[in-house]
């Protein structure tokens, strides 16, 4: 096998890994602060893709879709937290889990009603549709390079937000001892609301970014949700560093397996999970504090 094919496949793995990273970051930040396991996260990803489809259908502008998807899904997340999840705080953590589990099927059904059950084609924008020469050795779809670049930027913005702003400090503190943060005069309810919105927006942007790479259909979030839970568990529940590293590892694992032993591609991440959890039961960064 040509070695450039392997390097190319590594790039493909990286771009897939970036989708995992975006989704796992959203899941993780929500779990870390709110201890809510958001089972609607996959459906939010799917809604992000459809928000993209709708925006492009109306305006023909992909860049606008990239903006609209996280806004729509983030706004929806804010609404869900305020109306459905907030009444469940202070009860067993299974309540929000069951609620969001049910919610995802409602969200899927809504899409089936309005868009039908078949796939929607979604083209990458003109400007990103040609292959890009990488290191002068091989060609790689420009769109995937864009996905990688944008995810890196989003990770950096998130890092800056958490590490360098007052709000970030509150979130960091809130993941460790939210009661004490309240007892320092801070309205944690608003912070929980905001973070649920941010996590949802991340799912939305992952959805629209995934649309040109993977097909758009109502159940597209189901498998993705399971995969993202694997990513989060391997990274360590609530750890953002872990989500990033684990997302990339899983993307690469799938890409490389696809190249050498495609029959295994669908289950390789579960193998990786088994191995990692055998060695480190709480995941790669599970021992470190949440959101570190």
């Amino acid at each position: 096998m040509e070695w450039t094919a392997i390097v190319m496949q590594l790039f493909t793995g990286l771009s897939l890994g970036m989708l995992y990273v975006l989704l796992a970051l959203g899941l993780s930040i929500i779990f870390g602060l709110l201890t809510v396991v958001n089972f609607a996260h996959g459906a939010m990803y799917m809604w992000g893709a459809y928000a993209g489809v709708a925006t492009v259908a109306i305006t023909g502008n992909f860049w606008l879709a990239l903006l609209v998807a996280p806004l729509v899904v983030g706004g929806y997340g804010l609404l869900v937290e305020r109306t459905l999840i907030r009444p469940l705080y202070g009860r067993d953590i299974n309540y929000p889990l069951l609620l969001t589990f049910g919610l995802q099927f409602i969200m899927i059904e809504i899409i089936r009603i309005f868009w039908g059950t078949s796939d929607y084609p979604f083209q990458a924008p003109e400007a990103l549709s040609m292959p890009l020469e990488i290191f002068g050795i091989f060609y790689f779809p420009a769109y995937r390079v864009f996905v990688i670049g944008l995810t890196v930027v989003i990770c950096f913005v998130l890092w800056f937000f958490l590490e360098r702003t007052n709000l970030g400090l509150i979130i960091k503190a809130g993941t460790r001892d939210s009661l004490m943060v309240k007892a320092l005069g801070i309205d944690m309810g608003r912070i929980w609301w905001l973070v649920f919105g941010i996590g949802s927006a991340l799912a939305g942007i992952a959805g629209v970014l995934a649309a040109p790479i993977r097909s758009v259909f109502p159940e597209m979030g189901l498998a993705m949700l399971v995969e993202c839970f694997v990513v989060v568990v391997v990274g360590g529940m609530g750890s953002l560093k872990g989500a990033i590293l684990s997302g990339i590892i899983m993307g690469e694992a799938i890409a490389i397996t696809t190249l050498f032993y495609p029959q295994m591609a669908d289950i390789v991440i579960f193998l990786v999970m088994a191995v990692v959890l055998l060695i480190r039961p709480s995941g790669l960064f599970g021992r470190a504090g949440l959101l570190e």
Binding site: N166, L169, I170, K172, A173, R176, D177, L179, M180, V181, A183, L184, G185, I186, D187, G289, E292
Partner: peptide, 18 residues
């Protein structure tokens, strides 16, 4: 209830925030 993961200054800063 000193908040873990935060420096001494950050603990004080958090109290000042509001």
């Amino acid at each position: 209830r000193i908040i873990p993961g935060l420096t001494v200054r950050e603990n004080l800063k958090l109290a000042l925030m509001k």
